[in-house]
Write a protein that binds this DNA or RNA. Sequence first.
DNA 1: ACCCTTCAGCCAAGCTTTGAAACAACGAGG
DNA 2: CCTCGTTGTTTCAAAGCTTGGCTGAAGGGT
Lengths: 408, 408
Amino acid sequence: MQGRRSGTLRDLRRENRSAVLWSLYFDRPRSRQDLGAATGLSPASVTNVVRELLDEGIVTEVGSQDSDGGRPRRLLDVCAEHGFVIGVDVGETRVRTTLYDLTLVERAKADLSYGPGEYDMDVVVRAVADSLHAVLADAAVDPASVLGVGIGVPGIVEQGPEAVVHGQSVHWDAVPLERLLRAHTDLPLRLENCAKTTGQAELWFGAGRGARTAAVALIGTGVGASLVSGGSIYRGVNSSAGEWGHTTIIADGRRCRCGSYGCLEAYVGAEAILDRFTGPASASDSTSTSESTSAGDEESALAALVAMDDSPAAQALLAQTAEYLGIGIANLINLFNPERVILCGWAGLLLGGKLLPAIRSAAERYSLRHPFAATTVELGRLGPESVVLGAATLPLEGFLNGAIGHRP
Amino acid sequence: MQGRRSGTLRDLRRENRSAVLWSLYFDRPRSRQDLGAATGLSPASVTNVVRELLDEGIVTEVGSQDSDGGRPRRLLDVCAEHGFVIGVDVGETRVRTTLYDLTLVERAKADLSYGPGEYDMDVVVRAVADSLHAVLADAAVDPASVLGVGIGVPGIVEQGPEAVVHGQSVHWDAVPLERLLRAHTDLPLRLENCAKTTGQAELWFGAGRGARTAAVALIGTGVGASLVSGGSIYRGVNSSAGEWGHTTIIADGRRCRCGSYGCLEAYVGAEAILDRFTGPASASDSTSTSESTSAGDEESALAALVAMDDSPAAQALLAQTAEYLGIGIANLINLFNPERVILCGWAGLLLGGKLLPAIRSAAERYSLRHPFAATTVELGRLGPESVVLGAATLPLEGFLNGAIGHRP
DNA sequence: ACCCTTCAGCCAAGCTTTGAAACAACGAGG
DNA sequence: CCTCGTTGTTTCAAAGCTTGGCTGAAGGGT
């Protein structure tokens, strides 16, 4: 009900400082005057805040820009070297890690794969730890200047003093991943569901730029979504909001790997699509061949399916899939009334590339006029890097908000 | 992305003042010390803010309470007489209006009905205007001391400089209701969808008290929801969020009055339930008899149906309905991860009274473990008055936030 | 009586933003 | 070459806020 927490003067200062920093970060470089206009702060306050940021080495002055006849504006920019962030994508078959500077320019990458189905925690934890050390060494970056590590994982991440992961589909049951990693590194860690990290990447740098309310629909082997409200990701009471893939679109429908029936994921997840194509006879009772096919196979198989222009069966299946996907999207539109729906994930992009018009049309038919009119349905604009990139934005977010500048 | 708007000192003061006021409003009466603990403000600041509120006549001191051995605390309370708010429920067959004092104690009521199906705007507008004048006269309240009028209407309310109503099911197409009402009254008006007003009533005073994230599911003839996030109602980009009734639960299912197929409303809306019972033969293609049955008939018919303990057909239908409702609720739980789901609306309460265990069990089966574990599914605790009461909270909300005290 | 506890008001100190005025840096024009 | 106008940035005094610490106020215990 109440829920404000401001109170003190210092908080006010931090908020203004944070507003300036966010504003600069997403529109770089900029003059002080411009920042004032964007944040609503007076020129004097901008000067004060900027001086502080300059002193701390968070921003720098980079050249100047002629004004029409007056004193030229000094341009400010974020100092790329001031700090670094690391993004980690804990995927189904491998760990991808990238170290970025403060402006999210890549400095080093590592990519460690383990056998498919190897969800043994020790293996995963070691891979993450190794990759962290690898990128740090590779980029020759002092660990003390790393602002934090963002880690995108499959499954629900229960935030708390130490994040715990519940991955119902990869059989992780209350895994204390943060504590396990803590044994290998002292870097600040932030864990988050990988759909949410992708969502944040698209929101900051992709198709979601500037949206204050959006739904990022992620389709891979599994299906998820991240819901953006007020410009940041909505987590719900338990951090498990956005489990779009397990909303029911057909009561008593196909069995889903979550154990329920008729879930969206059981129709439009990559695995489900392939199952529906190859095993139409046992449609409503597939124990599925998930464990036997690796992700890479799945990817090429789906690509092949999408490319079967001369097969009526494949065409019909894809049309049906677009219809289901449209229903799922329409449900998001009716419930959330987002200004944008962004279709992401490797399977989502694959399907969307071909079926977007059909998906849009289905979404329109299944949603109410008013909310649909306010929405655009688009494809994500970031590639498969988006999970890592989004993960890296997690510590960055903290930095932009709190912005406790460490020593440079 | 950025989206803060604070900046100035005056804003900070207003926020603190508002925090105190909210805190006091929902836990009345309270001592200053207690307020300090609740808001996190220092005793000195509480004193300052409270003095201001006392000076403006918004709060008063009411007696004192012994402390264990020390100076007794003076108790503060909201001054009921300081202002008044009016709630209006524009229903399907009548307009209900209530005038409350600042503590939401009823001071006067009016209830004007028009023939069923009379959605002619002139009739409705006149009824609202008449009822406003009636309650003002009845309570002998000076219009200048009315803080505002909240109006709950069926359909989507597009907020803007002048609210416009889109009621797809009652055939209101972009009705400029606020402007039409403006011709009859000078009171400040706030329009909102009636599901959202009910939701706010339950949130403030009913089963949702204290919840910061909740889903209020409203079932009457139509089906809607209001989604609460961060303690306040989520509206989406277009104010049309929460159209739960028109999310699809069965692809290619029953036709819905919105024009689509397989909507939740087409299964669990009161009209739909009755249709499914009386006309099972034409299940998938009912043009429905909606216009011919008035709401009152529907209510008693549904009550009769629910009471048919000895009819296996009725029992099966109700069980099926609970299943569908469970699916709809599970979808809310998976997507939103609320800490509470509250079932409201006359039909919702009727069904819930008998079927709540079945509904809960269905919701559990169709939702993921983790989000379900964090949720409770309960019945609304407010009666049919909740729409009016919730409508009255709309201006109250503005008052508690801004709290520009007018002259007492 | 005396001390102790608890609540409320007061005041100087230390923040903050702000608006106006001053300063800086440049082009244009005489 | 100098001056003026224009635009961007900084400085400075003023006003407002919260904060702790201190002082009263009002009662129990002992």
